[in-house]
């Protein structure tokens, strides 16, 4: 998988200019990045799947991080999208911390447990405070991409 268009995270999926102010807005804006990058062929279906997962249990995993995710028929290839909310937004997090770092994770329905593996390596990397700080301070999509790729390896 050396073709850049098949990497889960590419700079086109990282938006540091749009800063969502609510949880529903964050999920829709992240999804729009995936749709624009051609990773989702049915936006409504993907949104319904993300909302269903969110209704089951919040993806506000604590430490200022939100990782809305879904395994969905509407997803073309494994995808990570990223945005920030510098002022922090309420994400129903279990530790009640406002969320500043937002990751969207999407995998195709036939993805097996790829979903869990991506979620677990991303979460593991985000447990390090230096990773979170670097992501909050990153000044370009390219920088975010390299922080995440380095951390997830």
């Amino acid at each position: 998988m050396t073709d850049a268009t098949h990497q889960p995270l590419i700079p086109d999926l990282i938006d540091l200019t749009n800063e969502p102010e609510t949880k529903p807005e964050a999920i829709e804006s992240l999804l729009d990045l995936a749709v624009e990058a051609g990773r989702v062929d049915d936006r409504e279906q993907a949104l319904a799947d993300l909302r269903a997962r969110e209704a089951e249990a919040t993806t506000g995993v604590g430490m200022g991080i939100g990782i809305p995710h879904a395994k969905s028929e509407a997803v073309v290839s494994p995808t990570i999208a990223f945005m920030r909310a510098p002022d922090g937004i309420d994400f129903d997090s279990m530790d009640d911390e406002p969320v500043r770092l937002l990751f969207l994770l999407l995998v195709p329905a036939q993805g097996g447990d790829e979903h869990l593996q991506m979620l677990s390596s991303l979460s593991r990397s985000l447990m390090h405070e230096e990773t979170r700080t670097a992501l909050l301070e990153a000044d370009s999509p390219g920088r975010v991409e390299s922080i995440v790729l380095e951390a997830v390896e």
Binding site: V61, I65, L116, S121
Partner: peptide
């Protein structure tokens, strides 16, 4: 008691 930590385990 940390959701991020528990998620990081990837236990199936």
């Amino acid at each position: 008691s940390s959701m991020l930590a528990v998620t990081s385990l990837g236990v199936g």
